[in-house]
């Protein structure tokens, strides 16, 4: 069985061999399957950015191996280069990468590097722009004339246009207002639904992850602290909070109620579910 992403005993150190050596990743074993929508959460410095930089070979493990789509990235240069296109990595504040004269040409940058035909590139640019909801008339504008939200979308489209097997997005909604954030998150689940691609979403907010992901991987101090379904991970919500992670307000209310001795579940993360449980409790109380 091959996985789009597989890490075997991966360790990574900054400044290896010096007294300043810092372990950023410690013996990570991870498999992400075809068509999964996995969330990776962890606070700043937990190793999540270092981890995703291994997925496309931007960082090479000091120990262990990274196997993308069945091929070990350490094999040769070609495999490594192929991984760049198999795993599309979209960093935090991706609008900082825009540079071309027009939006269309910027989106085409990745596909061009893949040495595709012009027709194919045009096709992909249109498709990606449509996916992220950029109006066709914006394609011929300079990316620097777009609004903040549009720039973000154009940058994400630039990664989507490479049609990677795995799309990795680091904090795609950072700095956006609630409306913009919801749009980006629903765009991501729509993308997964339509393409069937594997999607990895990185965030420090449980709230964003819970709303779209099937599986949550929690990073802490360079290791995988938890790995499971959203419900499973949320059943340890108090631990998540102690790791410096932001759990939804609703979850915080339930953690507190449990501390006070109420018999309520620990894995509540949506308002609807919380309201349902509490309504039931209030009803029982009044009879």
């Amino acid at each position: 069985m091959t996985y789009p992403i597989e890490l075997r005993n991966v360790s990574y150190y900054y400044s290896p061999g010096t007294p300043l050596q810092v372990a950023a990743l410690k013996n990570i074993n991870l498999k992400i399957g075809e068509g999964e929508l996995a969330g990776i959460i962890g606070h700043t410095g937990s190793g999540k950015s270092t981890l995703i930089s291994h997925f496309n070979g931007l960082l090479r493990p000091v120990e262990g191996s990274v196997i993308i789509d069945g091929e070990d990235l350490a094999k040769d240069k070609e495999t490594l280069r192929a991984a760049r296109f198999k795993v599309g990595l979209c960093f935090q504040y991706p609008e900082a990468q825009l540079f071309e004269e027009t939006v269309a040409r910027d989106i085409a940058f990745g596909p061009k590097n893949m040495k595709l035909s012009d027709e194919e590139i045009n096709e992909r640019v249109k498709k990606a722009a449509e996916f992220v909801g950029l109006k066709p008339e914006l394609l011929e504008k300079s990316p620097f004339d777009l609004s903040g939200g549009e720039k973000r979308r154009a940058a994400i489209a630039g990664v989507m246009a490479m049609e990677p097997k795995v799309l990795v997005l680091d904090e795609p909604a950072a700095g956006l207002d609630p409306g913009g954030k919801n749009e980006i998150l629903s765009m991501i689940s729509e993308y997964k639904k339509r393409t069937g691609c594997t999607v990895v979403l990185v965030s420090h907010s449980m709230e964003d992850i819970a709303s779209v992901a099937d599986r949550v991987i929690v990073m802490n101090a360079g290791t995988i602290a938890m790995d499971g379904t959203v419900d499973e991970v949320f059943s340890h919500s108090a631990e998540l909070r102690s790791m410096g992670l932001n759990v939804p307000e609703i979850t915080r209310i339930f953690i507190r109620l449990r501390e006070l001795g109420y018999d309520v579940p620990a894995d509540v993360y949506s308002v609807e579910k919380g309201a349902q449980i509490l309504r039931e409790m209030i009803r029982r109380r009044s009879v």
Partner: peptide, 16 residues
Amino acid sequence: EEIERIMNAQKARGAD
């Protein structure tokens, strides 16, 4: 730091 960030972003888009 900014240069490093931009370089990584473009490398991720296949810049050689």
